[in-house]
């Protein structure tokens, strides 16, 4: 098992090492994009609306039914 993991790790490592400069730039863009999406947009701009207001499923469903009934 350990040998297998080692092989897989080396497979990826060699793959990344042998990349051309332009391809490395591409990976930099990907990492920046993922950072913006998951660590800036998700955390600061896209909170779970119901999750941030209510802790239980019961409270969430009570809120949503109010929305359905009173509009």
């Amino acid at each position: 098992m350990k040998v297998w993991f080692h092989k897989v790790f080396n497979f990826y490592l060699d793959g990344f090492k042998n990349m051309s400069v332009s391809n490395r730039k591409l990976w930099v863009i990907i990492l920046i994009k993922l950072f913006i999406i998951f660590f800036i947009l998700k955390i600061f701009f896209f909170p779970d609306f119901l999750g941030s207001k209510y802790n239980t499923d019961k409270a969430k469903s009570d809120y949503v039914i109010e929305q359905l009934i009173n509009n």
Binding site: P47, D48, L50
Partner: peptide
């Protein structure tokens, strides 16, 4: 993300 925030 938009589902959870804008379309809760």
């Amino acid at each position: 993300f938009e589902f959870g925030t804008n379309w809760s």
